[in-house]
């Protein structure tokens, strides 16, 4: 009996320590300007304007991060580029590795949208790459945010890839991004946020945000193992929004 109780205690403590997700800023604090709706499976953010969205962005959150943590920059991106609808996928246990294929259902849930891109932050980006690998013709582009693929599965993919990373990232380090360049199509190093080489298809554009870190790609506070940023979260997310906006506009 004591052995069973001991096992239960160890199980409970392990789960409690390992399964904690980083919480987001509150919705009041985010002060969103666009239309937010939500189900148990996804968070939908779209423009308030009557112009129908033409691009759908299936977004996978980082591992053990509350999926609402990205709403602030997503909201600003939509304000600047109302043709995009962003669907953040809620993952089992907030781990995208358990829900790789959930993104393909999203594309079926919104039949009015014909242009789909996907991507994600950290583990979310890695799993978005797995999604593209399984459904290569369903997505036109892939956006890695502080992320890279686990293997060379997309080496020959003919879609457009944008990889945004930060120089002070302590988790997806600049060295990690460099090492995984060989796993992706032809690398183009961008000198500024508009330095795209057209056509985008069959290329990977790399953009580094100087002074940014891993956690500031979302609004969830300081992440263990991350480095200290030398720019504000607002500055980092503004840079992210700009480069994504230019990338999408050139697809």
């Amino acid at each position: 009996m004591m052995r069973i109780l001991k096992s239960i205690c160890i199980f409970v403590i392990t789960i409690t320590l390992c399964a904690c997700s980083s919480s987001s800023d509150t919705l009041d604090k985010l002060n969103l300007q666009n239309k937010l709706s939500e189900t148990s499976d996804l968070i939908l953010l779209e423009s308030n304007s009557s112009t129908p969205a033409t691009i759908g962005f299936v977004y996978y959150p980082g591992g053990l991060v509350d999926p609402h943590a990205y709403l602030q920059w997503q909201d600003k991106l939509i304000s600047q580029y109302p043709a995009i609808k962003i669907i953040t996928v809620k993952m089992p246990s907030n781990l995208a590795v358990f829900g790789i294929k959930k993104g393909i259902q999203v594309t079926k849930d919104f039949p009015g949208i014909t242009n789909w891109i996907t991507g994600g932050h950290s583990l979310g980006g890695t799993m978005a790459a797995e999604l593209v690998n399984k459904y290569p013709t369903d997505f036109k582009a892939l956006i890695f945010i502080a992320s890279y693929p686990a293997s060379d599965i997309l080496k020959n993919w003919d879609g457009a890839i944008l990889s945004v990373h930060a120089s002070k990232d302590g988790l997806s380090t600049v060295s990690d991004i460099e090492q995984h360049k060989a796993d992706l199509p032809a690398a183009i190093i961008m000198s500024d946020d508009q330095d795209f080489t057209l056509p985008l298809q069959g290329k990977t554009h790399y953009y580094e945000i100087m002074g940014g870190n891993h956690g500031q790609f979302g609004n969830y506070g300081i992440q263990a193992g991350d480095s200290v940023s030398t720019i504000s979260r607002t500055t980092q997310q503004s840079a992210l929004i700009q480069v994504i906006q230019y990338f999408i506009s050139k697809l």
């Binding site: 409970v12 789960i15 409690t16 399964a19 904690c20 997700s21 148990s40 053990l64 509350d66 907030n94």
Partner: peptide
Amino acid sequence: INYLHPLNQNLKWLAGTEFNSISWGNNI
């Protein structure tokens, strides 16, 4: 996991713990 203790032939009280992986993440 629950521990069940009999109160009479048919009725038991129980106590235990449960882990849930649901929409807002995990809870215990």
